[in-house]
Protein backbone atom coordinates (compact mmCIF):
# COMPACT_ATOMS: atom_id res chain seq x y z
CA UNK A 1 0.00 0.00 0.00
CA UNK A 2 1.38 3.41 -0.94
CA UNK A 3 1.98 6.10 1.61
CA UNK A 4 -0.74 8.68 2.23
CA UNK A 5 0.12 12.12 0.81
CA UNK A 6 -0.74 15.20 2.86
CA UNK A 7 -1.47 18.64 1.41
CA UNK A 8 -2.20 21.51 3.76
CA UNK A 9 -3.91 24.62 2.37
CA UNK A 10 -3.74 27.71 4.57
CA UNK A 11 -4.98 31.25 4.09
CA UNK A 12 -7.31 33.96 5.29
CA UNK A 13 -11.13 33.83 5.18
CA UNK A 14 -12.36 35.14 1.82
CA UNK A 15 -9.24 34.22 -0.20
CA UNK A 16 -10.85 31.33 -2.05
CA UNK A 17 -9.09 28.46 -0.28
CA UNK A 18 -12.33 26.45 -0.22
CA UNK A 19 -12.71 26.41 -4.02
CA UNK A 20 -9.03 25.49 -4.32
CA UNK A 21 -9.50 22.51 -2.01
CA UNK A 22 -12.67 21.44 -3.89
CA UNK A 23 -10.78 21.43 -7.20
CA UNK A 24 -7.84 19.54 -5.68
CA UNK A 25 -10.15 16.95 -4.11
CA UNK A 26 -12.01 16.60 -7.42
CA UNK A 27 -8.74 15.94 -9.25
CA UNK A 28 -7.70 13.28 -6.73
CA UNK A 29 -11.11 11.65 -6.94
CA UNK A 30 -10.89 11.58 -10.74
CA UNK A 31 -7.54 9.81 -10.33
CA UNK A 32 -9.31 7.14 -8.23
CA UNK A 33 -7.56 7.87 -4.95
CA UNK A 34 -9.15 7.48 -1.55
CA UNK A 35 -9.47 11.10 -0.37
CA UNK A 36 -10.33 12.79 2.90
CA UNK A 37 -10.65 16.54 3.36
CA UNK A 38 -11.11 18.47 6.58
CA UNK A 39 -11.94 22.13 6.87
CA UNK A 40 -12.98 24.24 9.79
CA UNK A 41 -15.77 26.75 9.14
CA UNK A 42 -17.59 28.87 11.67
CA UNK A 43 -15.71 31.83 13.03
CA UNK A 44 -13.01 31.40 10.38
CA UNK A 45 -15.09 32.99 7.65
CA UNK A 46 -14.91 36.36 9.42
CA UNK A 47 -11.38 37.13 8.26
CA UNK A 48 -9.69 34.58 10.53
CA UNK A 49 -7.12 31.93 9.62
CA UNK A 50 -8.51 29.17 7.39
CA UNK A 51 -6.97 25.71 7.23
CA UNK A 52 -7.98 22.93 4.85
CA UNK A 53 -6.35 19.54 5.06
CA UNK A 54 -6.32 17.16 2.09
CA UNK A 55 -5.07 13.57 2.42
CA UNK A 56 -4.99 10.95 -0.32
CA UNK A 57 -3.62 7.50 -1.11
CA UNK A 58 -4.88 3.91 -1.47
CA UNK A 59 -6.60 4.08 1.90
CA UNK A 60 -6.94 7.09 4.22
CA UNK A 61 -8.25 6.78 7.78
CA UNK A 62 -7.95 10.18 9.48
CA UNK A 63 -8.86 13.41 7.66
CA UNK A 64 -6.42 15.36 9.86
CA UNK A 65 -2.73 16.00 9.06
CA UNK A 66 -0.24 15.38 11.88
CA UNK A 67 2.55 17.86 12.71
CA UNK A 68 5.65 17.54 10.51
CA UNK A 69 3.93 15.35 7.92
CA UNK A 70 2.62 17.76 5.25
CA UNK A 71 4.24 16.85 1.92
CA UNK A 72 3.11 20.17 0.44
CA UNK A 73 1.87 23.33 2.12
CA UNK A 74 -0.04 25.68 -0.19
CA UNK A 75 -0.05 29.04 1.62
CA UNK A 76 -2.24 31.89 0.36
CA UNK A 77 -0.60 34.42 2.68
CA UNK A 78 2.86 34.93 4.21
CA UNK A 79 1.91 34.99 7.88
CA UNK A 80 -0.28 31.92 7.50
CA UNK A 81 2.67 30.17 5.81
CA UNK A 82 4.77 30.89 8.91
CA UNK A 83 1.99 29.59 11.14
CA UNK A 84 1.84 26.37 9.12
CA UNK A 85 5.56 25.53 9.41
CA UNK A 86 5.12 23.06 12.30
CA UNK A 87 3.04 20.89 9.96
CA UNK A 88 5.54 20.82 7.08
CA UNK A 89 7.52 17.57 6.73
CA UNK A 90 11.31 17.77 6.82
CA UNK A 91 11.47 17.23 3.05
CA UNK A 92 8.14 19.01 2.47
CA UNK A 93 7.58 21.68 -0.18
CA UNK A 94 6.11 25.08 0.52
CA UNK A 95 4.28 27.13 -2.09
CA UNK A 96 3.66 30.63 -0.80
CA UNK A 97 1.85 33.65 -2.11
CA UNK A 98 3.91 36.61 -0.89
CA UNK A 99 0.82 38.77 -0.32
CA UNK A 100 0.58 40.08 3.26
CA UNK A 101 -2.89 40.47 4.76
CA UNK A 102 -2.61 42.27 8.08
CA UNK A 103 -4.42 40.69 11.05
CA UNK A 104 -6.32 42.97 13.46
CA UNK A 105 -3.57 43.14 16.14
CA UNK A 106 -1.20 44.43 13.43
CA UNK A 107 -3.79 46.81 11.98
CA UNK A 108 -4.27 48.42 15.39
CA UNK A 109 -0.52 48.54 16.05
CA UNK A 110 -0.53 46.04 18.96
CA UNK A 111 1.63 43.52 17.11
CA UNK A 112 4.23 43.67 14.35
CA UNK A 113 3.94 41.84 11.06
CA UNK A 114 7.27 40.01 10.74
CA UNK A 115 9.34 41.83 8.11
CA UNK A 116 11.56 38.82 7.50
CA UNK A 117 8.73 36.30 6.97
CA UNK A 118 10.00 35.07 3.62
CA UNK A 119 13.60 34.59 4.78
CA UNK A 120 12.30 32.74 7.88
CA UNK A 121 10.36 30.43 5.59
CA UNK A 122 13.38 29.87 3.34
CA UNK A 123 15.49 29.06 6.38
CA UNK A 124 13.06 26.49 7.77
CA UNK A 125 11.59 24.76 4.72
CA UNK A 126 13.63 22.59 2.37
CA UNK A 127 11.94 23.94 -0.79
CA UNK A 128 10.09 27.25 -1.03
CA UNK A 129 8.31 28.43 -4.17
CA UNK A 130 7.41 32.04 -3.43
CA UNK A 131 5.54 34.35 -5.78
CA UNK A 132 3.16 37.29 -5.76
CA UNK A 133 0.13 35.34 -6.97
CA UNK A 134 -2.02 38.47 -6.87
CA UNK A 135 0.16 40.13 -9.52
CA UNK A 136 0.06 36.94 -11.60
CA UNK A 137 -3.73 36.82 -11.31
CA UNK A 138 -4.04 40.50 -12.22
CA UNK A 139 -1.86 39.87 -15.27
CA UNK A 140 -4.43 37.24 -16.32
CA UNK A 141 -7.20 39.81 -15.88
CA UNK A 142 -8.76 38.57 -12.64
CA UNK A 143 -7.70 39.69 -9.13
CA UNK A 144 -9.92 36.91 -7.72
CA UNK A 145 -7.84 34.28 -9.53
CA UNK A 146 -5.15 34.03 -6.83
CA UNK A 147 -6.45 30.62 -5.77
CA UNK A 148 -6.32 29.24 -9.31
CA UNK A 149 -2.80 30.60 -9.96
CA UNK A 150 -1.69 28.81 -6.78
CA UNK A 151 -3.43 25.61 -7.88
CA UNK A 152 -1.52 25.85 -11.15
CA UNK A 153 1.76 25.97 -9.20
CA UNK A 154 0.61 23.08 -7.01
CA UNK A 155 -0.18 21.04 -10.14
CA UNK A 156 3.44 21.47 -11.24
CA UNK A 157 4.60 19.70 -8.07
CA UNK A 158 2.14 16.83 -8.31
CA UNK A 159 2.32 13.75 -10.47
CA UNK A 160 -1.12 14.15 -12.04
CA UNK A 161 -1.76 14.80 -15.70
CA UNK A 162 -2.79 18.30 -16.79
CA UNK A 163 -5.96 17.09 -18.54
CA UNK A 164 -7.43 15.95 -15.22
CA UNK A 165 -6.91 19.39 -13.70
CA UNK A 166 -8.51 21.10 -16.68
CA UNK A 167 -11.43 18.67 -16.65
CA UNK A 168 -12.15 19.34 -12.97
CA UNK A 169 -11.68 23.11 -13.34
CA UNK A 170 -14.29 23.12 -16.12
CA UNK A 171 -16.60 21.24 -13.79
CA UNK A 172 -16.15 23.36 -10.64
CA UNK A 173 -15.68 26.91 -11.97
CA UNK A 174 -18.75 28.89 -13.14
CA UNK A 175 -18.71 29.11 -16.98
CA UNK A 176 -18.47 32.93 -17.13
CA UNK A 177 -15.23 32.87 -15.11
CA UNK A 178 -13.78 29.81 -16.84
CA UNK A 179 -11.66 31.66 -19.43
CA UNK A 180 -9.75 33.84 -16.96
CA UNK A 181 -9.36 30.93 -14.55
CA UNK A 182 -7.92 28.61 -17.19
CA UNK A 183 -5.45 31.40 -18.03
CA UNK A 184 -4.59 31.80 -14.33
CA UNK A 185 -4.07 28.04 -13.99
CA UNK A 186 -1.80 27.92 -17.07
CA UNK A 187 0.22 30.88 -15.76
CA UNK A 188 0.72 29.24 -12.36
CA UNK A 189 1.56 25.85 -13.84
CA UNK A 190 4.12 27.32 -16.24
CA UNK A 191 5.77 29.26 -13.41
CA UNK A 192 5.81 26.19 -11.16
CA UNK A 193 7.31 23.91 -13.82
CA UNK A 194 10.10 26.44 -14.40
CA UNK A 195 10.90 26.72 -10.69
CA UNK A 196 10.63 23.06 -9.74
Amino acid sequence: MSKTTNILIVGVGGQGTILASRVLAGVLLAEKYDVKVSEIHGMSQRGGSVVTQVRYGDFVASPIIEPQTADIVLAFELLEALRSLPFLAEDGKLIVNTQAILPMPVVTGEAQYPTDALSQLEKQASLVLATDALQMALACGNPKGVNIVLLGILSALMDIKEETWLLVLRDKVPPRFLGVNLAAFAEGRKWGLNKK
Binding site: R46, G48, P67, A111, P114
Partner: peptide, 16 residues
Amino acid sequence: RPILPTMGIPVRPPVL
Protein backbone atom coordinates in the same frame (compact mmCIF):
# COMPACT_ATOMS: atom_id res chain seq x y z
CA ARG B 1 6.25 14.49 16.73
CA PRO B 2 6.05 17.64 18.79
CA ILE B 3 4.43 20.77 17.47
CA LEU B 4 7.36 23.15 17.21
CA PRO B 5 6.62 26.48 18.81
CA THR B 6 5.77 29.29 16.42
CA MET B 7 7.05 32.27 18.36
CA GLY B 8 6.13 35.84 17.64
CA ILE B 9 3.56 35.20 14.94
CA PRO B 10 0.67 37.62 15.44
CA VAL B 11 -2.67 35.83 15.91
CA ARG B 12 -5.40 36.31 13.32
CA PRO B 13 -8.67 36.40 15.22
CA PRO B 14 -11.97 36.63 13.33
CA VAL B 15 -13.24 40.20 12.96
CA LEU B 16 -16.43 42.00 12.01
